[in-house]
Design a protein around this nucleic acid. Structure first.
Lengths: 97, 97
DNA sequence: GACATATGTAACCTAAGCGGTTACACTAAT
DNA sequence: ATTAGTGTAACCGCTTAGGTTACATATGTC
């Protein structure tokens, strides 16, 4: 796999820069639009919460994107975190084919 | 988004057909190779468990694939489930751009 | 200055998921 | 009959998502 030195962009940063700041939304407004609590969106935007499949569907409707976009961002982020939080998996031997 | 009538293939089914059956592995053997409990792998193979980022890394080492492959399969599966378990997100209005 | 709004965050709750061990019943092969 | 492999249940601990409520801190606006 490709090795990244720094963590991939957290989806929350993209929501903040590409949508909230660009469109002059407030977190409270957007949370209301998405039908989630202010806390839930705030955690994500501050890169302290995760995009769940349900949230990905909501974002895709609000921003006219695909839900996969958001989940893939989250996936890349989670994968980087997992690969740096333990070394166990590195010693697994490939199964002969 | 594209509409699928039936749920996307669960990653567990692929592990079963493409690896366990094709290579005549046992679940116990593979669990041991992956460094997880038999229960954890069994749940996944029986399509009752999820591929976590950690598990994706383990599978990628054992099968010489990318971890993204496994996570994307799981993502597609989870997304389909989420989109069919509630209709809340369907009524969200797109934000004007 | 007084007030309202937006925000981050903490405390608390419920519900759920993951992963582990142990144990039991079932099946299939030897 | 015995063994190996399996599904699965019961239990544990830990973590997380999401909600509500409440507080302190800005940053406005009148």
């Amino acid at each position: 796999m490709r090795i990244r030195k720094r963590p991939p962009t957290h989806p929350g940063g993209i929501i903040r820069r590409q949508y909230i700041e660009s469109l002059s939304l407030t977190i409270s407004e957007l949370a209301s639009t998405l039908g989630v609590s202010r806390k839930t969106l705030s955690k994500i935007v501050n890169e302290n919460g995760s995009i769940t499949p349900d949230m990905a569907l909501r974002l895709s409707k609000a921003f006219n994107t695909t839900p996969e976009l958001w989940l893939t961002l989250q996936q890349n982020y989670d994968l980087w975190q997992a690969s740096h939080s333990s070394d166990d998996w590195k010693t697994i031997e490939a199964i002969a084919i």
